[in-house]
Computed example of a mutant assay.
Amino acid sequence: MQELAKQALISMISHIIFIIITWQIIQSVRLDPIFKKMRTFEAKLLIIFVTIAIGTTVSNFFLDLLNWTNQITYLF
């Protein structure tokens, strides 16, 4: 049970860290010309959703990689 709680905590922290990293990267890209004027709310909401999607996907990749490296010990 304690291992499950530890894994959940690592997953939450990983997701938050990668979402923050993705947010910083997306903020450095100039996206203003893509969106229509007077649609700033929708543009910000889209950027937030894209940030969460990319950050979560990257986090899942690294969490899977971590789990696979732990499971490879069962090979031998």
Rank of each mutant, 00 (worst) to 15 (best):
41 F>N: 03
9 L>P: 00
71 Q>E: 10
54 I>C: 13
7 Q>F: 08
30 R>I: 02
16 I>V: 10
14 S>D: 12
39 R>T: 03
54 I>Q: 07
61 F>I: 14
27 Q>F: 01
6 K>P: 06
50 V>E: 01
56 T>H: 11
52 I>C: 00
35 F>Y: 01
52 I>W: 05
29 V>L: 12
43 A>F: 08
45 L>C: 04
65 L>Q: 03
5 A>S: 09
43 A>I: 05
48 I>V: 14
24 Q>V: 10
13 I>T: 04
32 D>P: 00
16 I>Y: 04
21 I>F: 05
11 S>V: 01
20 I>W: 14
62 F>S: 06
48 I>S: 02
42 E>I: 05
36 K>P: 05
5 A>W: 10
12 M>I: 09
22 T>N: 03
26 I>C: 09
56 T>F: 15
45 L>I: 06
1 M>S: 15
42 E>M: 01
50 V>F: 05
5 A>H: 09
25 I>A: 04
22 T>Q: 12
12 M>W: 02
2 Q>M: 13
15 H>E: 10
65 L>P: 00
29 V>F: 12
9 L>D: 00
25 I>Q: 00
59 S>F: 04
54 I>M: 14
48 I>L: 10
18 F>W: 11
26 I>S: 04
18 F>C: 11
50 V>I: 12
31 L>T: 13
61 F>A: 13
33 P>V: 09
46 L>F: 07
1 M>R: 15
18 F>A: 01
52 I>L: 05
8 A>K: 06
37 K>F: 13
39 R>Q: 11
66 L>D: 09
72 I>H: 06
35 F>A: 06
56 T>Y: 15
49 F>S: 08
18 F>H: 08
12 M>S: 11
17 I>G: 07
65 L>E: 01
54 I>T: 14
48 I>R: 13
23 W>T: 08
30 R>P: 06
